[in-house]
Amino acid sequence: MPPFPRLPAVALLLAGLAPLLAGCSPEAAPPETPPRVVASHVIQADGNGAVTRLSGRVKAAERTALSFEIPGEIQSLSVDVGDTFAAGDTLASLDDARYRLVAQQRRAERREAEASLAEKRQDYRRQASLADKGYVSDTRLDTARAALDTAESRHASAQAAVALAERDLRLTTLTAPYAGSVSQRQAEPAERVAANQTVLEVISDREGFEVETSVPETLVGALVEGNIHEVRLPALGDASSPATLRRLGTQPRSSNDYPVILAVDEPPAGLRSGMTARVALSLPAADGAAGLPIPLTALVYDGEDSAHVLRIDDDHRLERVDVEVLRLEEGRARVRGALAPGERIVARGAEFVDAGQAVSLLGEGPERYH
């Protein structure tokens, strides 16, 4: 039998180790798919209440229509719409010539009454002295007493007439009751105005602003004075402020709408009377089961009457939660299901991920670029 050819020792060694090395080499694993980045929303409790959104208008909390209490011709009107003033400033005045003459006449009548009173008082004293001595009758003394009473009455009347004339003279000047600004001007210089005819409408700087709106009769019973709501001002970049319900009207306007006044608790800079406002009234649920508010974009509809959301657990994995859609509101839905305040759900794009999938939260952890 022919001898086997000799192999080099190194070759024999490699041949023997080949099966062993092959058994110890793991198969190459596929690369792990990174978690999908999703936008999330934390469910907030809002007292299980509904939010009713209404339109309203901003007004100064303290406003007044100013007028003269007496008629006359306007001599000066020193302010116009938008002008500001301090308390006690002169805003307008009437021609006071007639009122000065009347005051002078009443003062003259008072001096005449004072002279007559002094005379009657002296005559009565003389008659009383003579009556004590028996020189005059009681009848004559009674006559002197009656004349003195008449003189005293005329003097009191003359004093009152002077006071009224001087008051009218002072009323020819219209002064500011408080610091504020002019919202409307309804008269002009040289114009003749009647007593109590509005000349200026002014607003105060000291009491802030309020929003006036109206609610249907079905909501009146759910509102409580002193409760906090929210107002937004579109003209100021949709700035918002808490607003306290100050007054609820007792008489309806047209269509059974009742007026509601809310005080703007934190007026944003630039707020002016007359601006439009959007009012969000937070109302308690009548049945205590108004559900929880979530973004509309978090809903995934499974059919005409069913929907679900994807909850994010502590391990950042998704769980499907079936919900009942109770009501659609502005930009959000109110739902009922196995959800609780403080839980996190997928806010957008829930239809592109699945239950059980691991996710990464947008804005948390390192950014991924694809």
Results as ranks from 00 to 15, higher is better:
Pro2Tyr: 09
Pro3Met: 14
Ala11Met: 07
Leu12Thr: 10
Leu12Arg: 11
Gly16Asp: 09
Pro19Arg: 13
Ala28Ile: 15
Ala28Asn: 11
Pro30Ala: 15
Pro35Trp: 11
Arg36Glu: 15
Val37Pro: 03
His41Gln: 11
Gly47Met: 05
Ala50Pro: 03
Glu69His: 08
Ile70Gln: 09
Gln75Ser: 07
Asp83Thr: 06
Phe85Met: 03
Asp96Gly: 00
Ala97Phe: 13
Ala108Gly: 05
Arg110Ser: 11
Ala113Tyr: 03
Ser116Asp: 06
Ala118Ile: 06
Glu119Gln: 08
Arg121Ile: 03
Asp123Val: 05
Arg126Ile: 11
Gly134Phe: 01
Leu141Ser: 08
Leu148Arg: 14
Leu148His: 11
Arg154Asn: 11
Ala156Glu: 10
Val162Ile: 06
Arg167Glu: 15
Arg170Trp: 02
Arg170Lys: 10
Leu171Lys: 06
Thr172Leu: 10
Leu174Ile: 04
Leu174Ser: 00
Gly180Arg: 04
Ser183Phe: 03
Ala187Pro: 02
Val193Pro: 03
Thr198Ser: 08
Pro216Arg: 04
Ala222Lys: 01
Leu223His: 02
Val224Leu: 02
Gly226Trp: 11
Gly237Arg: 07
Ala239Cys: 13
Ser240Gly: 12
Ser241Met: 13
Gly249Ile: 14
Pro268Asn: 14
Ala277Arg: 01
Arg278Val: 11
Val279Glu: 03
Leu283Trp: 05
Pro284Arg: 06
Gly288His: 09
Gly291Phe: 10
Leu292Gly: 08
Asp305Gly: 05
Ala307Cys: 13
His308Val: 13
Val309His: 08
Asp314Gln: 06
Asp314Pro: 01
His316Phe: 15
Gly331Pro: 02
Ala333Asn: 04
Gly337Glu: 12
Leu339Ile: 11
Pro341Leu: 11
Val346Trp: 02
Ala347Lys: 00
Val353Glu: 12
